[in-house]
């Protein structure tokens, strides 16, 4: 299996506060990777570095073998232009904690706008694939609704469909169920489970240990900007080696 994401010593600081202090991580194609850890550990920041929503300060971050946000030439890193980075981002889907659906557009328009404006897909083609995706997340009846008229779980399923509409090769999930009422978490996890089964490469920042245990191929535990432990779910969640991870698991399980 080829490598989808590769991070080597990725660091990042906000001002003088270090958030990532050398993160190493490898994700192969078709794998589901869960990032767990206490809040403020840098999970979300790391995820956002992968599609260059945040710039990392140092270290190497490659998606499909290509450096994110930079071009290596003659031993120097050249920052890429806005346009070039945009092209790369279109191949990476992202799902946010707060859904971030476009409030002024209907559900259907939320799914077609990226295809049409970024990838230049014709409207009828975009609408067709949008309807297929909405059916896949079980919301084909809601295409004329505005996001504010949907429940949190429905909004998050639309957000996943919106990301999928771009036909990404990698999906990033930033705590996709943290803003949901407990009874709505299941429907979103179901969609993510199906997505994983279909062979999508996924990196998921989550507090849902059940999901991680069941779906993930590997789990990384981040604490204070460092990967403390990593391995299969059985190893990391079932047999924690460090005191910190034991502490963390005792709080979230």
């Amino acid at each position: 299996m080829s490598t989808m994401v590769e991070a080597r010593g990725v660091t990042k600081a906000y001002g003088h506060v270090p958030v990532l202090r050398g993160v190493d991580l490898v994700v192969s194609q078709g794998e589901v990777t869960c990032l767990i850890g206490p809040s403020g550990s840098g999970k979300s920041t790391f995820l956002r570095c992968i599609n260059h929503l945040e710039k990392h300060d140092a270290g190497e971050l490659r998606v499909e073998g290509e450096l994110v946000g930079y071009r290596l030439q003659n031993g120097k890193l050249y920052e890429q232009s806005d346009k070039q980075i945009c092209g790369e981002r279109a191949n990476i889907g992202m799902v946010f904690q707060r859904f971030n659906l476009f409030q002024h557009l209907t559900v259907l328009d939320n799914l077609t706008i990226g295809q049409m404006k970024v990838k230049g897909v014709k409207e009828d083609v975009a609408v067709k694939s949008a309807r297929e995706l909405l059916a896949r997340v079980g919301l084909d009846a809601k295409e004329r609704n505005y996001p504010a008229q949907l429940s949190g779980g429905q909004q998050q399923r639309v957000a996943i469909a919106r990301a999928l509409a771009m036909e990404p090769r990698l999906m990033l999930f930033d705590e996709p169920t943290s803003a949901l009422d407990p009874e709505l978490v299941g429907e979103v996890l179901d969609v993510m489970r199906d997505l994983a089964k279909s062979g999508m490469t996924m990196i998921v920042v989550t507090h849902e240990m059940g999901f991680a245990r069941e779906v993930a191929n590997s789990v990384y535990f981040l604490d204070q900007g460092i990967i403390e432990e990593s391995g299969t779910p059985a190893e990391v969640l079932g047999n924690p080696r460090t005191e910190r991870l034991r502490n963390f698991l005792s709080k979230v399980l």
Partner: peptide
């Protein structure tokens, strides 16, 4: 979050401003 979502879809700054 609206800007972030638009950016993550690959929209340029101009598109994000104009469309979102």
């Amino acid at each position: 979050g609206q800007t972030e979502a638009a950016t993550s879809l690959g929209m340029t700054k101009g598109q994000t401003l104009r469309l979102v």
